[in-house]
């Protein structure tokens, strides 16, 4: 199956999951996804749990307080919402581990090109940010104040934009020389 087919299958699965309102079915779906994920299953599960941790904890605690005060607490709701969110996030991570997003978006050459360039730029930017952080940390023996951190943010932003601009221009010119912009 092509990446586009996997993407369409994923979209169908997402609609089906959001139409299910029985925690048992969602838990079974989660079990099946974990089963079929292969050797990366625990890494994906850990990543999924981590990515939903803050939001779902906030909703869960908020629901406990609000529903408890209104005497409308349903434990089944918490099971339902947490299973559904975890299953949807697992599906998304499974898909992104399995396919190349830019390939899946190839039905639109502009979208595919923009995705490739953006992901490339993000990698450049992430590297610059991590370099900045490491350098900043090594220069400060104790926790820096707001002024230092504000200076860091401004400097980071300028360098990030400058570096990305150069990198993107190079990529763009390289793609032009290969005829990407020619109709």
């Amino acid at each position: 199956m092509s990446d586009l087919h996997w993407l369409l299958l994923y979209l169908l699965a997402v609609v089906i999951v959001s139409l299910l309102h029985q925690p048992l079915w969602l838990a079974m779906g989660l079990f099946l996804v974990i089963l079929f994920c292969g050797p990366i299953r625990w890494r994906l599960l850990r990543k999924s749990l981590f990515s939903i941790l803050y939001f779902n904890t906030t909703v869960t605690l908020g629901y406990l307080v609000v529903a408890g005060m209104q005497n409308q607490f349903r434990a089944e709701y918490l099971l339902l919402i947490n299973c559904r969110v975890l299953l949807l996030v697992m599906l998304a991570f499974w898909l992104s581990a399995r396919i190349n997003i830019a390939n899946a978006l190839r039905f639109s050459s502009s979208l595919s090109f923009l995705t490739t360039l953006t992901v490339g730029q993000f990698r450049v930017l992430s590297r610059v940010v991590s370099d900045f952080r490491a350098a900043f940390k090594s220069r400060n023996l104790k926790r820096p104040g707001w002024r230092e951190r504000a200076h860091l943010a401004v400097a980071q932003t300028e360098v990030i934009m400058e570096k990305s601009q150069h990198a993107a221009t190079e990529i763009s010119q390289a793609m032009r020389s290969r005829g990407v912009f020619d109709d």
């Binding site: 730029q121 993107a168 763009s172």
Partner: peptide, 16 residues
Amino acid sequence: EETIPRLAVITALAYA
């Protein structure tokens, strides 16, 4: 070729 680098920069910035 002029707009795309800028768009990529700002999209990546917004992404980050």
